[in-house]
Every structure is written in structure tokens, then in C-alpha cells.
Amino acid sequence: MAKELSRNPTDDNRTLFVRMADSLRSDILANRMAPGHKLPSESELEENFGVSRITVRQALASLHAEGLIEKVNGKGSYVTRPNELPDMGPLIGFYEHMRKQGKRAVGRILSMKQVGAPAAAAHALEVSLGHPLIALRCLRLVNGKPFAFVLSYGEPALIKALIQEDINTNDVVVLLETRLGHRLKSNRIEARAIPASAALAKLLDVQRGSPLLRIDFTPVDVSGQSMVYSEMYFRGDSFSYKAVVKR
């Protein structure tokens, strides 16, 4: 797992701790150090990597700030579990948000097919235009009525894994973290109002031209990898979002 970091005259303390953190992060993300795994002691890490104690502590502090490890007083540092990361909000926690309001929320897969990445998906996922992706079309219903339409793009293996874990009753972020073991650090979100096209109006049972709330989101893991790009279209007469922004 740990390897001694080679030194040369150009290596400074920052370079060493970054390289050490990268090595440990790689082991965590690849599940070579599973959730709950206890890291070696600081002295062991110091010896294993051939670095100073201050370098070890800087590397551990970096991993702690990313939510990858937690320090237990008197016991050492442990790998965290993906679902211990901060909540990312009801905009992308749709099912849980609705269930907390006592509503029955389910999804229905309308279609799944391989496509060449369109411009928006290519930009969000940082792939070339036309790169092979799976396009997944889903309708979300609340208490049996159409509530939102979701168009998601992702690498074929990842989309198929999400479907296998039941994307009709679980939010994408929840599945990525708790079922598939990915560790997310952020979500890129953009929201705007649009008029319903004929196709969207039919799916959501509204009049053509009715206002819809479109929300695009892309979860990003701790390595900076964009996971899935989704366009969500909510009925304007059924959905509102409230937030408190703290300084």
C-alpha cells in the first residue's frame, strides 16, 4: 500500500505531502483501504513513506478535509464511509425530499440507448463531442401523477450499474455514494425557467408553453471526475425549492 516517496533536491515539504496524500487517496478510492479501515499510525506512515512527521500530518489533514478519513481521539484515523459525506440538498435528493413530506415518489424508465455525447453532456462530463454514452429517460411521479422528467447521460457501465441498484426509487447521488462506493465532493447545478415543448408537455401533462423549472446537475467525485450529467424538468405548478444561504 504505502511506498517510500523518492526525494530529490527539487522536492519540498509541500510536494511530499501532496504525493503522500495522492497515494493514500488512491488506495481509498480503489477500496484497497475499505470504509472503516484503520490507517497506520503516524510513526508507521512516517517510516513507510520515508517522510517527516509534519508531512504525515499535512497529508492526513488534506484527506480529512476531503471527507475521506476521520480522526478518533486516542485511536487514530479511519477511512470514512461514503454516506458520511455532507448532504447535498433536496434538489438532487428528490425521492427522499418527497418522502419526508409524506408523498409517494417513484420513477419510471422510459428509454435507455447508447448515443453520441451532445454538446451539453460532453462539456459537463469532459468528454469529446460524440463520445459514446448512455442516454436514460425517466419520468418521476408523485402520488401517481407526473411531476418531473429526467434525461441523464453517463458512461454505459455506470448507467447500467445505477439501473441495477434501482434508480426508480433512489436518487442518483445516494446510489453513487451508498451503493456504488463513489465519494462525491460537489455538484454543479444550474437552474432556469423554460416553456414546455410539445414533447415535455405531453410527458408532464401540462399545456404546451407552460412554465417548467429546468435544473441541470453533475455530481463530481473527490478526484475531480464528473460522474453523470442530468437535465431535470419540473412542473412549475407543483415544485418549489426553498433554501437558507448562510454566510
Rank of each mutant, 00 (worst) to 15 (best):
L85M: 11
I54S: 15
V174W: 14
V173K: 07
I28W: 01
N73A: 15
M227I: 04
L213G: 07
D12I: 07
E231M: 09
V228Y: 03
R19Y: 03
A199N: 08
E177K: 07
A30Y: 06
S230T: 07
C138Q: 15
A59L: 03
M88W: 02
P156M: 08
I215L: 13
L158M: 08
D27C: 10
A161K: 14
K75N: 01
H64Q: 13
Y241L: 08
R137G: 04
S43Y: 10
L39M: 11
I215Y: 01
K160I: 07
L141K: 12
D166V: 05
D166T: 01
F239V: 03
P86H: 09
G93D: 14
A199Y: 09
L141I: 09
S6N: 10
Y233P: 03
G130E: 05
S226P: 06
S210A: 15
D87Y: 12
L91A: 14
Q164S: 13
P146A: 05
N13S: 14
A121D: 04
A59H: 02
R214V: 10
A201E: 02
L68M: 08
R81E: 13
Q225M: 10
P118R: 11
R137H: 11
I167G: 05
S43Q: 13
K145C: 05
I69S: 07
K3S: 12
E66D: 13
S62L: 12
Y233D: 04
V72M: 06
E96G: 10
S240P: 01
L212S: 06
H37I: 00
I167F: 07
K145H: 10
A161P: 06
T169Q: 12
L204T: 02
G154I: 02
R7Q: 12
T178I: 09
L141H: 03
L110M: 09
P132V: 00
V244F: 10
D27R: 10
I215G: 07
P146L: 04
A59S: 14
R192S: 13
V72I: 11
I194P: 05
E165C: 09
E66H: 06
G50H: 05
G36K: 08
L85A: 12
Q101A: 14
A34R: 13
K113R: 15
G236V: 04
P35N: 02
R81P: 01
G89Q: 02
R7M: 11
P82C: 10
N143R: 04
D237F: 00
A117Q: 02
M1C: 04
L175F: 02
M98F: 12
L162H: 05
I215K: 02
N168P: 00
G74T: 04
H64E: 14
Q164R: 14
V127A: 02
L204N: 00
L29H: 00
E66K: 14
H123F: 09
N187R: 09
F239H: 09
H131E: 13
G130V: 03
I163C: 11
V79I: 07
E42R: 13
F49V: 01
P219I: 04
L176H: 01
E155M: 08
R214D: 05
D11V: 11
V115K: 00
R140C: 03
P86G: 07
L91K: 14
S186R: 11
L203D: 00
H97C: 06
A193M: 15
H37M: 09
A191Q: 14
F94E: 14
V72T: 08
L176D: 00
A148H: 07
A243L: 00
A30N: 15
S52G: 14
M20S: 07
